[in-house]
């Protein structure tokens, strides 16, 4: 049972990053390799705010804002122009790989390739007992936030006008703009949301590890891809389920099989889903679905 909690909490981080990725992929049709760095930059945003003397909540907000801004900037400076020049699917991959290298290098340069201490005071770091289980407050916080944020996002997409606009743009740019929806504005907002989610994941990772470095987020990128594939491109709910599923599978691999297979879990998941059911659990071709 304890392991189940571990899996769900771990999956929470995966889900947050995966949802952002699947949103961008579903709405903009772009597989962005820069998302891992967005996550790391979000964490650094909180670190810098903290060092400037901000309180926990302000620092948290600063980190989330940093993530959103970086993601939007990537859209504005690279993805958008490339889209206008008619780039192929593959060219976005190369361009975002380049962006990822640049973003990572900037952090490496500023931190002199060192690992820095991440602030923990003010964040939930204790433990609590519920019956026979010992839960870490951090785990509970991650689970709660993931659920709240995903629910809010899914509700927004389904029931608000903005949500309808996003789905319209995902379905067809031309039709959407004929209906008076601005694709560009939609892309910006979607990027901001994806960036904010990634930042939350990055901040939690920082608190969990008590440190952060320019390479902290890199290993999460492939898992985020796995989450998006398993859940179905464009499906927020799918990404949440996919993220939790992969988190649980990883943890159970450790508990019942062998630690060696923990690494293989995400990749096996991708292969199995692609061979058996390429559209993922909830996906359909290139649409944003709740």
């Amino acid at each position: 049972m304890q392991q189940l909690i571990n899996g769900v909490a771990l999956g929470g981080t995966f889900a947050l990053l995966g949802v952002g990725l699947t949103l961008i992929w579903g709405v903009m049709g772009v597989l962005t390799f820069a998302q891992a760095q967005v996550l790391t930059w979000g964490g650094f945003g909180t670190l810098v705010a903290w060092e400037l003397g901000a309180s926990v909540w302000v620092a948290f907000g600063a980190g989330v804002l940093t993530g959103a801004v970086v993601c939007v900037l990537v859209e504005v400076t690279v993805i958008g122009p490339l889209r206008r020049r008619g780039g192929s699917e593959f060219s976005f991959v190369a361009a975002t790989m380049g962006v990822s290298v640049l973003l990572g290098f900037f952090l490496e340069w500023r931190t002199h390739a060192q690992t820095l201490t991440f602030p923990r005071e003010g964040f939930p770091t204790g433990s609590m007992r519920i019956g026979a289980l010992t839960l870490s407050e951090l785990q509970v916080a991650i689970i709660v936030i993931t659920i709240l944020v995903s629910a809010a996002l899914m509700a927004t997409l389904r029931w608000t006008r903005f949500g309808r606009d996003v789905r319209a743009v995902a379905e067809s740019r031309e039709v959407a703009s004929l209906l008076g929806v601005s694709p560009r504005a939609t892309y910006w907002v979607v990027s901001a949301i994806a960036g904010a989610l990634a930042a939350i994941a990055g901040i939690f990772q920082g608190v969990s590890n008590a440190n952060i470095s320019y390479s902290s987020g890199d290993h999460l990128l492939m898992i985020a891809f796995a989450v998006a594939v398993v859940g179905g491109i464009g499906s927020v709910g799918g990404a949440v389920v996919g993220g939790l599923a992969i988190g649980i599978v990883q943890v159970f691999a450790v508990a019942y099989v062998s630690s060696a297979f923990q690494q293989a879990a995400a990749f096996l998941a991708i292969l199995i889903v692609l061979v058996l059911r390429p559209q993922g659990l909830f996906g359909r071709e290139e649409t944003v679905r709740v």
Binding site: N209, H219, S259, A260
Partner: peptide
């Protein structure tokens, strides 16, 4: 076992 890039050790610790 973990790897050099592992950040969540809770499964192994549990």
């Amino acid at each position: 076992e973990v790897t050099s890039t592992t950040t969540d050790y809770r499964a192994q610790l549990t």
